[in-house]
Computed example of a mutant assay.
Amino acid sequence: MGQASVIVVGNEKGGAGKSTIAIHLVTALLHGGARVAVLDLDLRQQSMGHFFASRRAWLTANKADAPMPLEYPLSIELAKAPDAEALARFQEAFERASEEADFVVIDTPGGDTAVSRMAHGSADLIVTPMNDSFVDFDMLGVVDPVSLELKRPSLYSETVWDSRKTRAAANGRMIDWVVLRNRLAPTEARNRRRLDQRVQALSKRVGFRVGPGLRDRVIYRELFPFGLTIADLSPSIRPVAMSLQHVAARQELRALMSSLGLTGLDTTLMAAE
């Protein structure tokens, strides 16, 4: 196997923004000059797979040029296959991707599967987006319903913790884990303070870092059906009218990449400003 860096975007709760984060990481890395392979383990929804299919179609129709990742699609039938077969098929695709790319980005389903657990155990970096609410925090940690004090880590946190221990025992390397505060709302300051305190307490207990995510911006939704992100916008690729929101969104993506230790992208992201 090669020495590709493996990024797993994971959270067992649906609707946390995993695919949105994954496609932005991929396109930003591509524009930074990296060879990026993608594996979409959400076999039923396949949001990331559909995104890059739309990207290919839009670029062809508009005679435009933008980088594409290496894709290793897994069939939807694999969702109903026995675990042994699913794991073998994933391992085969993962090894090919690792040999041919600088980064392998894996989007995982909103649930617990054997393949998702294997992917987590293969990661160098686990990125967990969470919406800014106690509804999403429940996937990471359990709080007392009366005092709201943190009681214990959740099952997903324990899954990541087990993956990190296994990886460290195998090769002495600890998986980096970053929780992104995604879709931050500007209101409800008191609730946010409460949530901040529990997130920080849990981060010290189970060992993740906290980073900035992406706000719930119209521009992200506008670009998605074209298979494009703000990293792609340039004088020759402008499917929607430019605005100050695009500048703020680029700055947001820069902050996200920096928090994950993925840098060297500023020149490209600033090109269309």
Score class of each variant (00 low, 15 high):
G2P: 07
Q3W: 04
Q3F: 04
A4D: 01
S5C: 13
S5W: 12
V6S: 05
N11F: 03
E12K: 14
K13M: 04
G14A: 08
G15V: 02
G15D: 05
S19C: 04
A22W: 01
L25F: 06
A28H: 03
V36M: 01
A37I: 00
A37Q: 00
D42T: 01
L43T: 06
F51K: 01
S54H: 13
R55V: 01
R56P: 08
L59H: 00
T60W: 10
K63F: 12
A64I: 04
D65Q: 14
E71M: 11
Y72S: 00
K80L: 13
L87R: 11
A88V: 08
R89I: 13
F90E: 02
A93V: 02
A93Q: 07
F94G: 00
F94D: 01
E95T: 12
E99S: 14
D102R: 00
F103G: 00
V104W: 02
V104H: 00
T108C: 06
D112P: 09
T113L: 05
S116C: 13
R117P: 03
M118G: 10
A119H: 02
G121Y: 10
A123V: 03
L125M: 08
I126C: 01
V127N: 02
V127D: 02
T128Y: 03
D132H: 11
S133G: 10
L140R: 08
L140E: 02
G141T: 06
V143A: 06
D144T: 09
V146L: 12
S147Y: 09
E149S: 12
L150Q: 07
K151F: 11
S154P: 08
L155I: 13
S157G: 05
E158V: 08
E158T: 07
R164F: 04
R164K: 11
R167D: 06
R167T: 02
A168G: 12
A170S: 10
A170W: 11
A170P: 05
G172M: 06
G172A: 07
D176N: 12
W177H: 02
R181H: 09
L184E: 11
L184C: 15
A185T: 13
A185E: 15
E188I: 11
R190Q: 14
N191V: 14
N191R: 14
N191H: 15
R192N: 13
Q197Y: 13
R198S: 08
V199T: 09
V199R: 06
L202W: 03
S203E: 12
S203M: 08
K204Q: 12
R205D: 11
V206E: 08
V206A: 01
R209Q: 14
R209L: 12
G211E: 05
R217V: 11
G227D: 06
L228M: 04
L228H: 07
T229P: 02
I230Q: 08
A231C: 11
A231K: 01
D232T: 09
D232S: 03
S234R: 06
R238P: 11
R238T: 14
S243H: 12
Q245D: 14
H246W: 11
V247D: 13
V247Q: 14
A248P: 15
E252N: 09
L253T: 04
L256A: 06
L262N: 10
L262C: 10
G264N: 09
G264T: 08
G264A: 07
T267I: 07
